[in-house]
Amino acid sequence: MIRSGSFAGRIAALLVMLLMTLGLTGCLSHWFLDSSTRLQVENRTKFDVVSIDIISEDHTSIKPWIKDTVRSGEKSRVYEEDWVGSFQARFVFLASDSVKRNVVKEYRADMDFDGGSLYMVLYEDKDGAIHYEFR
């Protein structure tokens, strides 16, 4: 197969194969896949959100994601990071205890990010537990 045909024919066949393989790799998957996640958070709880980070599995390293303090009832700016996959997110809230002292509350959640734009809403249920929801 390789030795048949003219020299130009062989080169043309190689070029066609190269183009086919070029078409198969790269680029194509970006038509329907994102390799970064753009996150915006709306805080519907009565607490202020101090930060939202990704935390390592052994809880020793932290990479900040939402760098704003999101006050109760407000939205954060959009932050784009390369978190696509399965990670543990950490939410830090500023709450006040019974004698009106500020205390920091941490929540952790395992999350899957598929990339692209995400709009996250944090809210409290009637028992006071904090939940998140993507919209």
Binding site: T21, S35, I54, S56, T60, D82, V84, G85, F87, Q88
Partner: peptide, 19 residues
């Protein structure tokens, strides 16, 4: 040629990254 992002994810201390 690896068509799916979940075929060779990267395991780091933070979790599994698609790629």
């Amino acid at each position: 040629y690896i068509p799916a992002v979940t075929q060779t994810p990267l395991k780091s201390e933070y979790g599994e990254h698609d790629g």
